[in-house]
Design a binder for these strands. Structure first.
Length: 501
RNA sequence: GGUGACGUGGCCGAGUGGCUAGGCAGAGGCCUGCAAAGCCUUGUACGGCGGUUCGAAUCCGUCCGUCACCUCCA
């Protein structure tokens, strides 16, 4: 049975139910990053939208085919003041201070692509069915460009191949940017080509035999334009018509507009039925920028600051994708606490499940109700704040009834885990020489510290027993300085690592 | 200038005609040697101005503000 999954469709400007081409099979493409550096939390907010779509679709029993690309081809930057040479991002990264450690662009691309996979895993994003790379689909791109030329939708100039926007009447249907005069005025062509027939025309292929990444084509050595890779790879793995295409809001124009033009000029049919775009996040109320010091990659938070990766995930999905979102450290701290409670609840229900107990019917009913609310919230344009509220409500219920939990409680945690991906269950696989345990990412070297910590806690316990509280408090302060937080309870003292935020 | 989105309390963020969102922070209490965590109780709101309606945060108009894009940045 299929339920309506409603999403805001950029194409129509309305919230509409996903209307699948093949019943119960979602074919879905999401634009991935250009890997010239570590992906930042803004990138991941966008990837997380795709992740939630996928999880929700699966929860209502849909089969899913999810493709998200890795752009590993350099593309020209548009930063004409900083970069008058029109150098591309990959090449620029190679020449940066961080880039000098790489032998060449290919090496750089491999490194950051591995880092992306690792971050991806840390934030518990589901594995795509296909994660194609632009450089592995050059042949298909060339073939598509040839076809576009043959049907008159593209033309060759001395500098490259351009798509002829004039030949595609629907150009502008996604972004609303239809007026060619307006574009003509605004246009800032990176590589000025006087042979372009229309200022709106965009490059499918750039001729350049000096470029660091170049391939041989019918038009000589060069590299593909940015837009062509996505539509080609989407059609390659998902077919000419797809159900859903996602990306960041900055991609609406020109990237997605151009994808539509390329794909639909070729097939004469709608490329994607639905388009969703994730709004940018701000950090502490400001646009994320390196010079303001509010620019964060996943590893800045997880490795440098020791934040539990799932807390980062929770923070990033705590705002609805379609609304502007302000990422703050206050939110992140809250999320760390939520994740702790979720873990506690999970541990409690796990045992209950192993015992094969049944919940009291009232508890079971309450949790079943919450599960419905969570799913319904997600089906309603990925209303994550509401879904999280219901999930946490269930967690609170579980923690309150810790001693009488059964299977339904365990199922509730499984549901939260499947739908929102915010339940820490097992240690994540190690990455980058760091081991991630249930208390967050801790460098392995600290394993030997554990003993010292335990000893200090022992000493404090003795001091407390002897009612020497000033000594006990001193030890607690020392531990706190080591980012260790302790809790006294009836069963003794427990400790955990605290993040540095 | 053009295109699109958004504007809810101290903060983050749901709610789309009448019915408690939730979280954080604040206040009071329980627990604790003191903390931390947890639990209980609790106040504050819908950008401005018009209009429609018995009734508007919600619909319509208008103004103001914020964000994004305008040729290769999620």
């Amino acid at each position: 049975m299929s339920q309506a999954f409603r999403l805001f469709n950029t194409l129509t400007g309305k919230i509409e139910p996903l209307n699948l081409i093949e019943p119960n099979h979602l074919r879905f493409y999401s634009c991935g990053p250009t890997i010239y550096s570590y992906a930042h939390i803004g990138n991941f907010r966008s990837f997380l939208t795709a992740d939630l779509v996928l999880r929700t679709a699966r929860a209502i029993g849909w089969k899913t085919t999810y493709v998200t690309n890795i752009t590993d081809v350099g593309h020209l930057t548009n930063d004409d003041t900083m970069d008058p040479s029109g150098e591309d991002r990959m090449a620029k990264a190679l020449q940066s201070s961080e880039g000098t450690r790489f032998a060449n662009v290919w090496d750089l691309s491999r490194f950051y692509s591995d880092a992306l996979q690792s971050d991806w895993q840390q934030l518990n994003l589901l594995k795509p069915d296909v994660q194609p790379r632009a450089t592995e689909h050059i042949r298909e791109q060339i073939q598509t460009i040839e076809k576009l030329i043959s049907i008159g939708a593209a033309y060759v100039t001395t500098s490259g191949v351009y798509f002829s926007v004039d030949r595609f009447s629907d150009y502008g249907k996604l972004s609303g940017n239809q007026a060619s005069e307006a574009l003509e005025q605004a246009v800032r062509d990176v590589v000025v080509d006087p042979e372009k027939k229309d200022p709106r025309d965009f490059a499918l292929w750039k001729k350049d035999d000096q470029h660091l990444m170049q391939w041989y084509s019918p038009w000589g050595w060069g590299f593909p334009g940015w837009h062509i890779e996505c539509s080609v790879m989407a059609q390659c793995y998902l077919g000419d018509e797809i159900d859903l295409h996602a990306g960041g809001e900055d991609l609406i124009f020109p990237h997605h507009e151009c994808e539509i033009a390329q794909a639909e000029a070729l097939t004469g049919r709608p490329f994607s039925r639905h388009w969703i775009h994730t709004r940018f996040l701000q950090v502490e109320g400001q646009k994320m920028a390196k010079r303001i010091g509010n620019f964060f990659t996943v590893r800045d938070l997880v490795i440098e600051k020791g934040v539990e990766p799932l807390a980062v995930r929770l923070a990033l999905i705590s705002g609805q994708y379609h609304k502007p979102f302000n990422f703050t450290f206050s939110t992140l701290r809250d999320c760390e606490r939520h994740i702790k409670r979720i873990r506690e609840a999970y541990d409690a229900t796990k045992n209950a499940n192993d015992l094969g107990r049944q919940d009291q019917s009232s508890l079971a009913d309450a949790l079943t109700e919450k599960q419905h609310l969570i799913l319904n919230a997600l089906l309603d344009d990925l209303n994550t704040p509401a879904a999280i509220a219901h999930a946490l409500d269930g967690v609170r219920t579980i923690l309150k009834n810790k001693d009488s939990l059964g299977r339904q409680a365990h199922e509730h945690m499984t549901e939260i885990s499947n739908l929102l991906g915010i339940v820490p269950q097992a240690a994540l696989p190690p990455s980058d020489g760091h081991v991630s345990n249930v208390r967050g990412s801790i460098p392995k070297a600290e394993d030997s510290q554990t003993e010292i910590i335990e000893q200090m806690i022992q000493k404090r316990s003795i001091a407390r027993r002897e009612r020497d509280f000033s000594k006990a408090d001193k030890i607690r302060d020392q531990l706190l300085e080591m980012n260790i937080e302790i809790k006294d309870s009836a069963n003794g003292t427990t400790w955990e690592h605290k993040s540095k935020i």
